[in-house]
């Protein structure tokens, strides 16, 4: 690495320092106050974190369950169909998340499940599907067909071939998809706000509440920091797993 290539990093590094590092430090300093300590001492805070974790985990698993067959199907299509289907997968990105959420509300209200945990999970799964399908598709597509043939040739039915060859070989895609979905889900607040109402707050909603409504930035900062540490822990775990599996 010479000086010239280091100079390339000047602008991005400055940007990160100014808009990421500084705010984080401010946040950390603010969370040292007494309100923060009070908030972290409350059991409800930890219950909230636990529930956010659970909702995010359930939504991630459901997302995986829905996405895997879809990705498998797309990978099995001819090149023309594949491109069309992948285009359809990312198509929702072209519409605003809020608009999509409102549209979902119109569907969920007559079903009578609006403002329930089910509605929140459904909404979360719905909006994060592309983040799961794309990495899964990429890794499924890379599985050599001859390995599937070798498995069947050795006596494994297509079902067993799926579990013994396809799934292990697409672990990197599964892990990447789960991280891409799970981490943003942990901190999300807009979707639970609309679909869960006041009855299903997640950690993101509570942070929003502390900052915007109850004017308690100390508590909000503390909660944010806890969330950040949790996220970092998961990301660290993920990279560690990837390294030991030799998949990096």
């Amino acid at each position: 690495m010479n000086k010239r290539s280091l100079s390339l990093l000047l602008v991005p590094a400055g940007w990160l320092a100014l808009f990421l590092l500084v705010p984080t430090v401010v946040l950390a300093v603010r969370s040292l106050g007494p309100e923060a300590a009070r908030t972290l001492a409350e059991a409800t805070t930890w219950m909230l974190l636990g529930r956010s974790f659970l909702i995010a985990a359930v939504a991630t698993v459901l997302c995986l369950g829905v996405s895997y067959p879809a990705a498998l199907f797309i990978a099995g299509c001819s090149a023309r169909w594949r491109n069309l289907l992948l285009f359809l997968v990312v198509l929702p990105f072209w519409t605003n998340l809020l608009v999509r959420t409102f549209a979902l509300m119109f569907v969920l209200r007559p079903l009578g499940i609006l403002y329930t945990e089910g509605a929140v999970i459904l909404g979360l799964v719905h909006s994060f599907l592309p983040f799961m399908i794309l990495p899964l598709y990429v890794s499924i597509e890379k599985v050599p067909r001859r390995l599937l043939e070798a498995s069947q040739d050795l006596g494994a039915s297509p079902w067993r071939t799926f579990w013994k060859v396809t799934v292990p070989l697409t672990m990197p895609g599964i892990a990447a998809g789960c991280m891409l979905v799970f981490i943003p889900l942990l901190g999300i607040f807009a979707l639970p706000e609309f679909l869960g109402g006041t009855r299903v707050p997640m950690v993101g909603n509570q942070i929003n509440h502390y900052f915007m409504r109850s004017e308690n930035p100390g508590a909000g900062s503390a909660l944010t920091l806890v969330l950040m540490l949790l996220t970092a822990a998961f990301a660290g775990l993920y990279y560690r797993l990837r390294r030991t599996e030799g998949l990096v």
């Binding site: 050599p144 070798a150 040739d153 494994a156 039915s157 071939t161």
Partner: peptide, 20 residues
């Protein structure tokens, strides 16, 4: 009769070993 129900095994040109 599908491949997994046939009493034959194939040695592939490019080995096709399971990398995992």
């Amino acid at each position: 009769v599908p491949p997994h129900r046939r009493d034959v095994n194939l040695v592939f040109q490019n080995y096709a070993l399971f990398p995992h």
